[in-house]
Amino acid sequence: MKAIKNILVGFLVSFLGSIPLGYLNIIGFQIYSEFGIENLVQYLLGVVFVEAFVIYLTLIFANRLVRNIKLMRIIDIFGIFFLLFLAYSFYSYSNQTAASPNYLEKYMIYSPFLVGLLLSGINFMQVPFWTGWNLYLVNGNYIKTTNTLQFYYVGGTLTGTFAGMMGFVFFLHAIAQNGAHFSKYLFAIILPLFFIVLACLQGYKVFKKYIRKP
């Protein structure tokens, strides 16, 4: 029963956490649109492979990570510049797609699995995300981490991430197929603005957490 609870809690947290519009979802949407379901599955497997280690390590060392203020500050500040870089990248990609619909092909000379590994590996924002959630779930007694129960939790989270990302990719693809305006402005305007707003929110979080004194 405890194992089932760990799986369900892990699945729910990860599924909901993977739905918000992020760069991993957008790249997955691009891969699916250009290269089909098989490449998307390989890409998602690469993403969750890295996430497995992140979740497990943050589960084991959550308390130490939270107490390492210097490391958490670096991660938080890095997040601002990373989000701004994503905004610029999607805006520049929108210009490339106008001239070359298959601009992703130069990146897909590598295995989609390796692309997923790389992009998930540089997603440092998942460290504070999973550190916070793991602390909350353990301290609230929502999951058990004794013996092998922690692996049931990790398995549930990976399944949730895979299902959530794939479902969201299908959702974006359906909208893009049926909405010409959405498809036209998604990469040129909507996504850059979205990541700029996230960068501003991240900047405010850093200011409030590390600069402004209570």
Rank of each mutant, 00 (worst) to 15 (best):
M125P: 01
G132K: 04
I80K: 03
N123I: 09
L135G: 05
I77P: 00
L118K: 09
S94F: 04
T148W: 15
F53W: 15
E105S: 13
P112R: 03
S94C: 04
S111H: 04
L104K: 10
I69Y: 10
K144S: 14
A52R: 04
F129M: 13
F82D: 01
Y136N: 13
Y88W: 08
S111I: 08
M125Q: 11
L83I: 02
S100P: 00
Y107V: 00
R67A: 15
L137V: 12
G140K: 07
N63L: 07
L84M: 10
Y56H: 13
L117Y: 06
N63Q: 12
K106A: 11
A98Q: 12
A52E: 06
Y107F: 13
I122Y: 03
F90R: 00
G121T: 01
L137W: 10
K106H: 09
F113S: 07
V50Q: 07
R73K: 14
Y103M: 05
Y142L: 14
Y91G: 01
Y136K: 14
Q96L: 10
L84F: 08
I109W: 05
K144N: 14
Y91I: 01
I109R: 05
I75N: 02
T131G: 09
P101H: 05
I143A: 04
V66K: 15
S92R: 06
A52V: 14
R67D: 14
Y88R: 03
V50L: 13
S94H: 02
A87K: 02
S92M: 07
V138I: 15
A62L: 08
F81S: 05
R67E: 15
V54T: 13
T145G: 10
